[in-house]
Design a protein around this nucleic acid. Structure first.
Lengths: 145, 145
DNA sequence: TTTAATTTGGATAAATTAGTCCAATTATAT
DNA sequence: ATATAATTGGACTAATTTATCCAAATTAAA
């Protein structure tokens, strides 16, 4: 698995919240965990982390729930999400686990892994939450399991 | 981290054993764990798994140790190693953790992740242990941490 | 033949990740 | 006002991964 469960759930959750936010709606924990098929209590914890990082916003009390502010939605990418729940996610580390590995002191797999690593990093940095939510809205992609 | 610690250590260990095997030498646990900078007892467990999968060979008693048979060395790739210590490693799974995700029912990231996933799989399937060991022998790449 | 260096195997421990449960707080809607 | 539906926070549990320790078995060398 490339991403942790925490990251997987968080990405699914934020994409779903983003979709709702696009329509000016907020959504509560229960519906989120039903829609993305994630354990409710665990998802709650993740939403708290996402909130602490300023990624989602929550409103308290009856008919409370979660949403993502318009401006945020424009800027958020997958790195932000992964970092919020897993701490610094770094896909630039050596695939063999060598700390010293670099272009100058390469591990035996360095050259072959280089591009993949770069592409993975790019994917996380360049994939915008907004883009994913809009895709979802078109009905061409899915969040169902 | 892309690979588990178990896989990282195992790859480093087998590459080192392969290097020695190329020169007709076997090498013992202690030296392996020193050279690849891995915890000795844990590495021992991994070597047992690799042995059970027929990847490495061991000789018992004083001046015992590990090596890899010539023929094996020709055929082994990274998949074999990762599978031996981590069970079936599958990098074809959905990055968002959706079981239903496929070309027909894609998750929002499916198209962007598709190539990366393919490249990762290719890397593991096509990278031969022998190639890595030979590279190491040239002194252009390193196993040091 | 004894000693010493090694693998083997089993039990156990520590750390991390994944997940649950419940009480307290908050605020809307009846 | 009050009941109700929601987030919040803390303690707890479970599962998996990453290790450690030690005794037994094996075999080469002294």
């Amino acid at each position: 698995m490339i991403l942790s469960k925490a990251s997987e759930y968080s990405i699914r959750a934020t994409v779903f919240i983003a979709l709702k936010s696009l329509e000016g709606e907020k959504v509560n924990l229960k519906e989120i965990s039903i829609q993305i098929e994630s354990p409710e209590a665990f998802t709650s914890k993740l939403l708290q982390l996402l909130k602490k990082s300023g990624i989602v916003r929550s409103s308290l009390g009856k008919s409370g729930g979660f949403d993502i502010e318009k401006e945020k939605l424009e800027s958020l990418n997958l790195c932000h999400i992964v970092n919020a729940v897993d701490g610094k996610a770094d896909y630039s580390v050596c695939i063999m686990g060598l700390k010293a590995c670099s272009d100058n002191v390469p591990c035996p797999m360095h050259s072959q892994y280089r591009n993949i690593k770069q592409n993975l990093n790019d994917l996380l940095h360049n994939t915008k939450l907004l883009t994913l939510a809009k895709k979802l809205r078109t009905g061409q992609v899915f969040l169902t399991n």
